Amino acid sequence: MAGEIPDLIAEERAGTGKGAARQARRDGRVPGIVYGGGEDPVAISVPYNELLKKLKAGRFLATLFNLKVEGHDDVRVICRNVQRDVVKDLPTHLDLMRLKRNSRVNLFIPVEFIGEDTSPGIKKGGVLTVVRPEVELMVTAGDIPEKLVADVSELEVGDTITISSITLPEGSRAIIDRDFVIGNIQPPSGLASQNDDDEDQPDADEVPTTEMGPPDGE
């Protein structure tokens, strides 16, 4: 079930404290610390440009990484904090937490929609509208799904598919408690416009009548 976890390449820092952290920044790196998992904390640094790229990609604090540090075993980590410069808003330090295989963590999992070729609603001209391209789940670190699969093969125009229609990994659950919508089949744009126009036109028995008074002089 587990998908490919992105690598985060780091180096172990020889020193700790403000002086070592400043030196790491001068070398184009961002200092950090790895803690948890029943092991001693390790001071690290990561390339500034690589970290900035990952931050701009989004979801950095909700992404599980495979941390690679020379001289240490690879370990799964999740970032718990990124300190930033108060003026430039650029990263200055990061805290990474080790995760055991049975650790529970919140992650955003992408949703793949299948069955569009056979969906009767789409065959009639309907359009698949993706409401949630990803869903936040609480999962175990050792059983993270690569994706969730939403089957729309039997959906008609106007039908929706909700989170309860998707099989979640054992032990996982959605963060949102209600049965929220993942996607739906919208009517063809032309039909939708026509329906809107029809709704704007009053029915014949709803057209107001004007009571005519007697002609002038009567």
Score class of each variant (00 low, 15 high):
residue 2 A to H: 06
residue 5 I to H: 05
residue 6 P to W: 13
residue 6 P to S: 15
residue 7 D to Q: 14
residue 8 L to Q: 05
residue 8 L to G: 02
residue 9 I to S: 11
residue 10 A to F: 02
residue 14 A to H: 12
residue 17 G to Y: 04
residue 18 K to M: 10
residue 18 K to Q: 15
residue 23 Q to D: 14
residue 29 R to A: 03
residue 29 R to H: 02
residue 31 P to M: 07
residue 32 G to W: 10
residue 32 G to L: 14
residue 36 G to A: 07
residue 39 E to S: 12
residue 43 A to D: 13
residue 44 I to G: 01
residue 45 S to A: 14
residue 47 P to M: 06
residue 47 P to C: 04
residue 52 L to K: 08
residue 53 K to S: 11
residue 54 K to N: 05
residue 54 K to V: 02
residue 56 K to I: 10
residue 57 A to V: 00
residue 58 G to C: 04
residue 61 L to C: 08
residue 62 A to P: 01
residue 65 F to E: 00
residue 66 N to A: 07
residue 69 V to W: 06
residue 70 E to F: 06
residue 71 G to C: 07
residue 82 V to H: 09
residue 83 Q to R: 04
residue 84 R to F: 06
residue 85 D to Q: 03
residue 85 D to C: 04
residue 87 V to N: 01
residue 89 D to K: 10
residue 89 D to A: 11
residue 91 P to E: 05
residue 92 T to Q: 10
residue 92 T to P: 04
residue 93 H to G: 03
residue 93 H to D: 12
residue 94 L to P: 08
residue 94 L to C: 11
residue 96 L to D: 13
residue 96 L to M: 13
residue 97 M to K: 13
residue 104 R to C: 01
residue 105 V to Q: 02
residue 105 V to H: 02
residue 107 L to Y: 04
residue 108 F to Y: 15
residue 109 I to E: 01
residue 111 V to F: 07
residue 113 F to H: 10
residue 113 F to R: 12
residue 114 I to S: 02
residue 115 G to L: 10
residue 116 E to H: 08
residue 117 D to K: 15
residue 120 P to F: 04
residue 128 L to E: 06
residue 131 V to D: 08
residue 132 R to L: 08
residue 135 V to G: 01
residue 135 V to P: 00
residue 137 L to N: 01
residue 140 T to F: 07
residue 141 A to I: 00
residue 144 I to A: 01
residue 144 I to Y: 02
residue 144 I to G: 00
residue 148 L to F: 15
residue 152 V to I: 15
residue 153 S to G: 14
residue 154 E to W: 13
residue 155 L to P: 05
residue 156 E to T: 09
residue 159 D to E: 13
residue 161 I to T: 01
residue 161 I to F: 03
residue 163 I to R: 00
residue 163 I to H: 01
residue 165 S to V: 01
residue 165 S to F: 01
residue 167 T to G: 03
residue 168 L to E: 00
residue 171 G to D: 01
residue 173 R to V: 11
residue 174 A to R: 05
residue 174 A to L: 07
residue 175 I to T: 13
residue 177 D to W: 09
residue 178 R to P: 01
residue 179 D to R: 15
residue 180 F to M: 12
residue 181 V to S: 11
residue 183 G to P: 11
residue 184 N to V: 12
residue 185 I to C: 02
residue 185 I to A: 02
residue 186 Q to E: 09
residue 187 P to Y: 00
residue 188 P to H: 04
residue 188 P to C: 05
residue 189 S to W: 11
residue 190 G to K: 14
residue 192 A to N: 08
residue 200 D to W: 03
residue 201 Q to W: 09
residue 203 D to Y: 05
residue 206 E to A: 15
residue 207 V to D: 05
residue 207 V to P: 01
residue 207 V to R: 04
residue 208 P to D: 13
residue 208 P to C: 06
residue 208 P to T: 12
residue 210 T to K: 15
residue 211 E to T: 13
residue 214 P to A: 07
residue 215 P to A: 02
residue 216 D to V: 11
